[in-house]
Each structure stands twice: as structure tokens, then as C-alpha cells.
Design a protein around this nucleic acid. Sequence first.
DNA 1: AAGACCATGTAACAGGTTACATGATTAT
DNA 2: ATAATCATGTAACCTGTTACATGGTCTT
Lengths: 193, 193
Amino acid sequence: MKSPQGGTAHALLGFLTWGPMSGYDIKKAIGESISNFWSESYGQIYPMLKRLDQRGWVAHTEAPTGRRGRKLYRLTAAGRQELERWLGEKARTRPPRNELLLKLFFARSLGPSERRRLIEEYGIQLASELATYDAITERLNAKHADHEDLPFWLTTLRYGQLGNQALLTWCDETLETLDSTPATRTHSTRRPR
Amino acid sequence: MKSPQGGTAHALLGFLTWGPMSGYDIKKAIGESISNFWSESYGQIYPMLKRLDQRGWVAHTEAPTGRRGRKLYRLTAAGRQELERWLGEKARTRPPRNELLLKLFFARSLGPSERRRLIEEYGIQLASELATYDAITERLNAKHADHEDLPFWLTTLRYGQLGNQALLTWCDETLETLDSTPATRTHSTRRPR
DNA sequence: AAGACCATGTAACAGGTTACATGATTAT
DNA sequence: ATAATCATGTAACCTGTTACATGGTCTT
């Protein structure tokens, strides 16, 4: 069997260091912790847990609640070792695909008002994410002040804060720059010299 | 036929506003312009050009060099219209997957030196990208000072500059913070209370 | 009784990369 | 000669989302 490559496997292993969890539990935990920089769907989680089980990196026990089925997965020693090995590896970056910049790159074919709107919409999203990061930071500092993982959690939030602040600056700057740029000559309005 | 969703189609249409090009030409143009925020492989480009042709958004003519085959694609009126429609649509953002932050989130299971290395490696990459953006900015300002697309090109570079600068600050800050964090108690070294 | 939430899973599809196959042309 | 570059394309594979199917349990 080939070794999984996409990070999904190790994200699951990571959560299982917190203790035994079901696929459903993990999905919920992701939404409450790393959703700002990572996501997984059930379509990834359940099949991957099965593969990790076959590999011996996790093991499961049937733990039904009442008559309802439930599988609790736990990390094995081999799984923990694999997680630690992976953590030490250089973090890979995927080839970026930023649709906003792609549109901006070809924005000559766009009217000035749509151009503005594009950037303003992006800024609104950045600002709303930033507010979320701020709120989570406060909540973590208040409720988990002595959790030994807190410093690491806070750095991931700080990443989002600094990044989004900088990109908000970029939005302001860009709106100004493009406003002071001479009106576009589009294909259809260009006159012969 | 379903409308393509992933941005690839419109990236190709965008380049064809520059004039007729082959798939090979487009791939090269991507590498020389938008590779910092977008990428396409031949496996995407050639089949997509065929689909765009069937859709009537591009048309092609055989334009062999010597005996070697070559297809030159050009934008049709319908294609230009579709591009402009798409440009005005809100830019979509994909669910992020930042492997560095994922590792950092679970970094308690990692030694302090590997932790440092992870962040330092990331910083090196950020700095090298930043240097590239600076160099390209200078080159563009010098060689294409009066190109009507220049303002748009520069904003995409500015995006990278501001973003990477902020994340470099984050690297410094994080290295300091984590160094002043008490030594990790890992699973294996934790003693019973 | 209704609706929200718990819980597991699959199938179909979409998006994308990598590796391969093929062969011509140009520069050294 | 030989290596680099031009040029087109496909097949296999991996990754990931969405939609669906199923049914139990808890709260109001």
C-alpha cells in the first residue's frame, strides 16, 4: 500500500493524540479548532480512518451509544511514531491558486466599478476573518490559559491576524492606486490612433 | 455540457486576450507572469483548450512551424464575453490547507529544535519569494513602464510583498515566543504526578 | 410530532499532477 | 552527435467535495 500524501492522514493522527475519537468527533473538532487553515470532509475522514486502521496506525473499538453504532479510534504506538516523523518533515506548500489575483491580472477587461467591488468584497471577507481570529484568541486566553498546547494554538491565530492585516492594507492601497490609474481603454472602446 | 468551474478555463481565456497562442505558449506565459499565484499543467491545458473550442469560446487554426504541428488558439467574441462575465463575479476562495500551521498546531509532540527548523525553513522560503517579487517589480517598471496592464501586474506583486513581509514578521515573533515557552512534556517523557 | 443533532458511510463527480509517449528543430 | 527546447497529447492516479442514503436519539 502506498503511503498517503495529502496531510489528511496526519491531521487525523494529530487529533487522536487528544484521546480516542470517532470520525464524527474528529470532524467536529476540526470545525472548532483548525478550520481557519485546514478542512476535511466526511468523504475523506471515514475512508482514511479505515486505511489508517489497515496500516496499523490506529485501532478501533466498537463503542455504541445505546443501539446506535459508533467506532472509537485510538492512536497506536506506530501511529504516534509516524505522526512524529511527519511533524519533523519540511512542510510542503501547494501551488497557490488565488482567483482574486487572477482576475486582477486581467482586470483591464473590466470596468472600474466592478474592479472596486472585487477588491472591496475581498476586504470584507478578510476583515470578518480577522474579527473571528481576534474573538477566538480572547476566548482561548480566557478559557484555556494553562493548557500546554495554548502557545501553539495562539501562533496559528497570530498567523492569520498578521496575514489578514497586511492584506487589508493591500486592499486599501490597491483601491487608491487603481482609482488614480487612467481610465481603461477596453477592446470595444479603443479608438484608432 | 457543464460549465467549467475551476478557474482554469478563464485563465486560458485571459491569456488569449493577448493574442493567438498555442497550449505550449500559454504554459510558458504562465511561468513568466502569474506563477506566483497560479499554475496550470499540460494535463489541464490541452484538454481544456479542446473543451473551450467545442464550446465556441476559442477557435483554432493549424499553424505548423516547418513540419512540426502547432495549433494556434484565438479568443472568439463569445469567449471574450464569457471572460468579462467571469471577471465581474465574486472571486471564490478555496478552503485553505496550510501544512505548516497544521504541524505547528500539533507541535507539542515535536522537539524544540525541529520546531525551530520548521519555522526557519518556512521563513527562508518566504524571504526568497519576496526577493523574487522585488526583482520582478523592478524589471517590470523598467521594461514595461508604459504598458497599459502594468498597474494591475504591480498590484499582484504588491500582494505578495505585503503578505510575505507580514509572515516573515510572524516567523520572527513565533521563534521568540516558542523559545520562551517552557520545555515540552512529551508523551514519552511525562512523569506520573 | 417535529426538528435538531448524532453517526456512519458510499457514489459520483470535479479538479489537478505526474509520468509517459512521440517526434521535430535548433544550438553546441 | 547530442542535448536542449519546441510541441502535442494521453493515461493513470491522487485528492477532495457534494450529494445522497440510512437510521438512531434527544429536545421542545
